[in-house]
């Protein structure tokens, strides 16, 4: 899944939105974020980690996320991300933008009723 070009491009554009949405529910490290996106989309979105980590780092550089290192029971330390106030604001913007975008796409794509009468 997630390998056809249209879905890949859509996923790339929506990656920041998806990451912020997942992290709104609590702090996680990168692998967990990827797993949650995959699981919550029933496998429809299987983000390439190649785009996940740059997104995490860009959001951190923008102040939307804060990252801290914590030791892990499973091996090396993990980098945990949590969302900031600025990140919540950015998430609200993404939600509004996505709703408008999805609505507009639906409007365009929905079949128009046949003109009736002469």
């Amino acid at each position: 899944m997630g390998r056809d070009p249209l879905r890949t491009e859509l996923l790339k554009g929506a990656m920041a939105y998806l990451v912020l949405s997942v992290l709104r529910e609590g702090e996680q490290y990168g692998y967990q974020v990827a797993q949650h996106i995959r699981d919550r989309s029933d496998g429809a979105f299987a983000p390439s980690e190649g785009s996940l980590y740059p997104t995490l780092h860009r959001l951190e550089a923008d102040g939307a996320l804060v990252a801290v290192w914590r030791p892990s029971e499973k091996g090396p330390r993990r980098r945990w991300y949590h969302i900031t106030e600025a990140g919540l604001g950015a998430l609200a913007d993404h939600e509004a933008e996505w709703a408008a975008f999805a609505g507009a796409v639906t409007l365009v794509a929905r079949p128009r009723p046949e003109p009736s009468g002469a």
Binding site: Y29, Y31, Y53, G75, P76, R79
Partner: peptide, 17 residues
């Protein structure tokens, strides 16, 4: 160094999973 550590952690998790 941090970035590479993060990727190593990811590879460990993914391989284990």
């Amino acid at each position: 160094v941090d970035v590479l550590d993060e990727l190593i952690g990811h590879l460990d998790d993914a391989a284990a999973s």
